[in-house]
Amino acid sequence: MIPAPFAYARPTTVDEALQAIADGGEDVKIMAGGQSLIPVMRLRLAAPETVVDLSKVAELRGVRDDGDAIVIGAMTTHHDVLVDPLIAQHAPLIAEATETVADRQVRARGTFGGALAHADPAGDLPAVALALDAEFVIAGPGGARRTVPAADFFVDYLTTALEEGELLVEIRVPKLAGEWGMHYEKFNRVAQAWSIVAVAAAVRREDGQIAEARIGLTNMGPTPLRARAAEAALAGAAASADAIAAAAQSAAEGTSPSSDLNGQADYRRHLAQVLTRRAVTAAAGL
């Protein structure tokens, strides 16, 4: 299939991009890597009036150290995320999850920011960003910037806090203090497939105990979710198989997973428990 016709803008700066979005008419789509958008346009499930292609906006690419956080440019490709030393050092969970995204050709084009702005609950990176308490830096008309915490960024199914005319610029991932272990536990049927359910876990151990756990759930509702009840049960719990298993029992609390070809809601709830146990166990180094 061939996409429906659209006007095309290829800005080279964030300011130009914001202008292009403002000028683009009623129905503007911002294209990052295009690896989800182009297929959807080919199937004519999307037929935007204007496509604003960010691929030449160099300032949106790359990862930098910003003191207490690392900052990942929205247009940093999955491939670049995988080979980035700062991410490897401070947020290996992102790399681990990114490695499971689609396939190498898609990872060569697809971007970190694009995946987050798409906010597909079955996508792997939103739950990771949520688990790491990432912050989303958004540029608006006129260049004004605002920062939204991950907990507020994912609003609903494929819907984020990004308003019309706004652009996701970069993602700040706070550096974690203390001894953290991380693991992304993905469950899917074939290599290329979206997650049926996945669990992103980051665990801080202290004196043989789990001092703190952050658990992000992929595809357990219209948005990525934190498994708050399980996190609470883990805080201060013994770093033991039994304690983790007990805490993981509450992983699906407060979730509202969908039923589809790959699994019905009750099965997804069950998976969330099993995968949370596995993810936390691995993150805790057990």
Partner: peptide, 24 residues
């Protein structure tokens, strides 16, 4: 889950309510 939950009944030439979906 494909493409933001868009149903795959993408009969060529038939636009669907999901036409506004998409992203990246």
């Amino acid at each position: 889950n494909a493409y933001g939950g868009a149903q795959t009944e993408t009969t060529a030439g038939v636009s669907t309510p999901q036409s506004s979906l998409g992203g990246d």
